[in-house]
Design a protein around this nucleic acid. Structure first.
Lengths: 355, 355
DNA sequence: GCCGCTTGTGCAAACGTTTGTCAAGATGGA
DNA sequence: TCCATCTTGACAAACGTTTGCACAAGCGGC
């Protein structure tokens, strides 16, 4: 208990270039490294006397000690990181989603590793492997295509729990949280019927992405229920881009059978679709009503302001994060897929059909 | 070299729940673990005979071995991760930035850890510490405020190299890559002068964010050079949001001295500014020209389509990533700040002044 | 004064890699 | 035949933690 050398006051700051290690903290506090470890671990601190805890804490503070999480991760088998895989970081929808995930995770001291697939299956496989190798505690993916199950199963088999966000897969093999896109599509159909339209069409998103399939189902079903005539053409977009929206709308407009209203399953595609209309001298909504999907950030300030379906993306991110925390604890504990409600947003791109 | 037990063919797949370890690969290939390590490491493979390498590789493939990067990171002192800190994930500008970073990093097998500050200094400190503790190889931050130098210095002192992206700090203490915002502001002023405006104003972004300071400088200087009268009011936005744009424009419009053109240092703020105009019955550009900044995604489809300054954000992300790779190799090796050119985008929100 | 109990701390073995060093065998020249 | 040299691969010590276990006091009850 005697001060080793009172003439030499301990420097308050560490100075050595490398970050302080637990061993240094233990030495300074004159305890064994394991005691230091326990004194700093809230869940074990009861086992150590108050005086010792105080001494260790003081030493840690003086040295600005911050535990090396990769060492701790190696030992514990938990890295306090999760993987988040998205298709396309430039998609404005994903910002709020990631924020939702990271706010919930931050409360648990978990940081997300972000990876991008660009809708490419090979890339998906590569980034998943990268995340597995980094021993993330779980992976939340919003980038799956229909048919990716085997790839995801392999990851699961390596012991990393998976959460499907936004895009689901058939069956209930994975913990899942999605938007209620069937309902969202139905909202669009109901709105158009309410306005008095008798003939409608929808543009189709990529065929291998679950969200677009469900939106389409919901709309088609709604159209049928409302007794509208469906004059959609069968062409699918290769990707949910402005250009593809323009292309698909052109196909529809250049075809024989014209609707008075069109459901476009993505706001960005809807903007392209409206370009195709403008190129043909068609005004929106005077000649043709358009309802989009997603409620893109500046949708209210487009010309015309876009009627659309809004999805609670940040909330979905939070739900996905909470689900991930649950499956980290117990990989088998996921219930049925969570389904978050879509809401209808009326603006000026829809109106009564022309007479 | 004799097969230990030919009656029991080696299973092609691992089956055991846990991922294969290097030791298991070594055992299966009948070599020492260190030999296995070298056989799988491209830079050491020359030391091992071809036959052995082949044997080890085969064993690794059969077991689906993937090295544990956290263990490797602990040993090597390199984790093959970098930290990326941004202010606000919902900002559509940041998607392309992060994508730029991650595409360059992916080629090096490096994955980004993303953290968000929400423009809050305490959060900045917390997330930086979190990244340091995870032993990221470098940190790219696009979220600094003027005055954050000490915080960043501490991180540097802990041995993690830092790259400033988008937002710089005074002095040349950090590797830096930014947009040429002074020039960007100047472009706006020159354009307005060219249209024949004689009186202009600018709305001011947050005072503690370097980018807004430089945009403002560039514009003010341009205005002076062109001999315009500057009737800006001194109020700064608290944040670069639509609401703040509306508020600042309202102050300007409700003041005594009206310009015929306004520079708004962010497209989102510009949209708010135009709302304030609309509320007062002012048309854009008939009564008042507006030039924004950033070239937000759907800016061309707003009403009116927004004249703005475009920044190569994805390219900046790539440059930041390359710079990070350089400072990882040699922390002192950063040259002077890189400055990427801004370009002018003419659309319909600007026109000649009303007579 | 012995026993069993609690409390506080130390010991040492992991976690899965990487890498400096060294030994054994092979090769070649004299 | 012998020594020097080169390959090849093994040994073992790290990297910075966490944690099961053992052990030493201290203490009250008999």
């Amino acid at each position: 208990m005697t001060d080793p050398d009172p003439a030499e006051p301990r420097p308050p700051t560490p100075a050595p270039g490398h970050p302080a290690t637990l061993r240094e903290v233990a030495d300074r506090a004159q305890v064994h490294i394991s005691t230091a470890s326990r004194a700093l671990d809230a869940s074990q601190v009861g086992r150590i006397s108050e005086a010792t805890v105080a001494r260790v804490r003081a030493a840690a503070a003086e040295l600005r000690y911050a535990p090396d999480l990769v060492a701790a991760g190696l030992k514990r088998g938990r890295t306090a990181t999760i993987g988040v895989v998205v298709a396309d970081l430039a998609n404005p929808y994903l910002g709020p989603l990631i924020r939702g995930i990271s706010t919930v995770m931050e409360e648990q001291g978990i940081v997300p590793l972000i990876a991008e697939t660009l809708e490419d299956e090979d890339r998906l496989e590569r980034v998943l492997l990268g995340l597995v190798q980094r021993r993330v505690d779980a992976i939340i993916t919003a980038a799956t295509h229909l048919g990716d199950e085997p790839t995801l199963q392999q990851v699961s088999a390596r012991g990393v729990p998976i959460v499907l966000a936004v895009r689901s897969l058939p069956g209930d093999g994975f913990a899942t949280v999605v938007h209620d896109d069937v309902h969202g599509g139905g909202l669009a159909a109901a709105h158009l019927a309410r306005l008095g339209h008798r003939t409608a069409a929808q543009l189709l998103g990529p065929a291998d992405i679950d969200t677009f399939v469900r939106r389409s189902q919901g709309f088609a079903e709604g159209v049928r229920l409302e007794g509208l005539r469906d004059v959609s053409v069968g062409a699918h977009a290769a990707s949910a881009t402005l250009e593809e929206g323009r292309r698909l709308m052109a196909i529809l407009l250049d075809g024989p059978d014209h609707p008075t209203a069109v459901f476009v399953p993505s706001d960005i595609m809807a903007v392209g679709a409206m370009e195709a209309m403008a190129e043909r001298g068609l005004a929106c909504p005077a000649h043709l009503s358009v309802v989009g999907y997603n409620d893109v950030p500046l949708g209210a300030h487009l010309s015309p302001p876009l009627t659309t379906i809004r999805l609670p993306s940040e909330e979905l991110g939070r739900a996905a994060a909470r689900l991930a925390l649950r499956v980290i604890e117990d990989p088998a504990a996921h219930g049925p897929a969570l389904r978050l409600p879509a809401t209808f947003v009326q603006r000026a791109s829809t109106g009564p059909p022309p007479r």
